[in-house]
Design a protein around this nucleic acid. Structure first.
Lengths: 234, 234
DNA sequence: AATGTAAGAGTCATGACGACCAAAACTAGA
DNA sequence: TCTAGTTTTGGTCGTCATGACTCTTACATT
């Protein structure tokens, strides 16, 4: 730090947001299609340039709204920075990766800045069926890995579901993210024995098309901030 | 991403490294004294500008060597990015925080770029006894928090000790970082029941000045990569 | 009414964990 | 040399979380 900063090479700083959600029982990521070179026509995660007058968190929130018209202020967490020299062929760009977790939103609305937006299955992205621009595959991979640990140490799971949810709904979040099968009865016990996780609403959800006993609807309690209710198997 | 990046405001990008180590049984952080304005004479964490031709990881490694002549390539993990508009009074600087964990090094050698370097007690820093330049207090705080979780989910603890260590030595790492007291016998059992953590060397360490039975020396096994051997109390 | 499905409640064995206790092996001082 | 103090190391005991089950309840579909 003994130099004049103005003498040093300039970088562009961007924020990229990995938006994860549950759709049809599996994990999906929100992608936008690039309208210009480089990587024109390819899928990419939404993002854009940070402005000098805003913080990184504010930039991430703004970009997410601009490109997907989604307001996820409360659940936007930073998980990594990427600055490899050739990650952008045009110039030196350092990007900050943000993770946003949303509940199922059904249809995706492309925002003002994006040509096209869609929810893509995470497994299709990770195994290479869908090519991503830049180093976005690595960024998405890091985001997924982050969610896996967050699920255990924090209570990010409730962000995937609505304000009221059934236990099976919540359990499917863990199963999809961790890629495991969890016993429904044991999952229920984990949330009830140590109380502070869920509070019953009295109302019940309609059973699925396959029938079955209607599940009770719950709301999240505050304990989720400190530690997750169950531990990751294996 | 629909704009020409050259039209956007330029940032300086730096890397700052929080070096943590155990000294006299407590957690210490490596700080350097600033020789120039702003914040001249104050303590700061070592760091410097990223070059366009290197990755962020390489920049962190290089800066650490330059300022502290410490080569910690294997244990340099990124934990956060900081880009608040006024965090550097001179211009827009976005910095990437890195965490390095070293074993006790005794004396600190100031590198070529630093006027002075010293190991400062982490508690003195966190409770405000030592003022840090820029937003480095927040950065150090985030690094500490990161170590606390890393200690539980990964096996970063062995990085604090030498290639061979006693169990009491390793236990003191957990106690210092988590700020708890752990029962020696139970700690030992945790490392032995689920085998894969330590392998005995047969040799024994010399007892401390207070006497006591000489402790056996161990080496680390590979299991540390997946999960920590014990869970955080509370 | 019969069948299928999923929620919800309970049982049982295992195993991890905290709180202890006690022996072993050393140092330091009387 | 003897004794007190300290630390490692090995062990017990009770509690509680967890995984693998079973069984009942309450719905849908045919």
């Amino acid at each position: 730090m003994n130099y004049d900063p103005a003498l040093f090479p300039a970088f562009a700083v961007t924020v990229d947001v990995v938006v994860l959600t549950m759709s049809e029982g599996t994990l999906h990521v929100l992608l936008v299609r690039r309208g210009e070179a480089p990587f024109k026509g390819m899928w990419a995660i939404p993002g854009g340039f940070k402005r000098p007058t805003e913080t990184l968190d504010e930039a991430a929130k703004r970009e997410l709204v601009e490109e997907t018209s989604v307001d996820a202020a409360s659940l936007l967490t930073q998980f990594g920075a990427y600055g490899d020299p050739e990650r952008d062929p045009r110039m030196n760009v350092v990007t900050i990766g943000y993770l946003a977790v949303l509940r199922d939103m059904g249809a995706v609305v492309a925002g003002t800045d994006a040509a096209d937006a869609a929810l893509i299955s995470v497994s299709d992205v990770l195994n290479g069926k869908i090519d991503l621009a830049f180093d976005h595959l690595r960024i998405v991979g890091d985001a997924i890995e982050r969610v896996r640990v967050e699920l255990e140490v924090s209570g990010i799971a409730t962000a995937f579901v609505g304000p009221t949810f059934t236990l099976a709904e919540l359990r499917s979040v863990y199963e999809a993210v961790w890629g495991v099968q969890l016993d429904g009865a044991n999952f229920r016990r984990s949330l009830f024995t140590e109380n502070g996780w869920v509070i019953p609403t009295g109302r019940r959800a309609r059973p699925g098309a396959a029938g079955g006993k209607p599940a009770e609807l719950f709301r999240a309690k505050r304990a989720w901030k400190f530690r997750g209710p169950i531990r990751r198997p294996l």
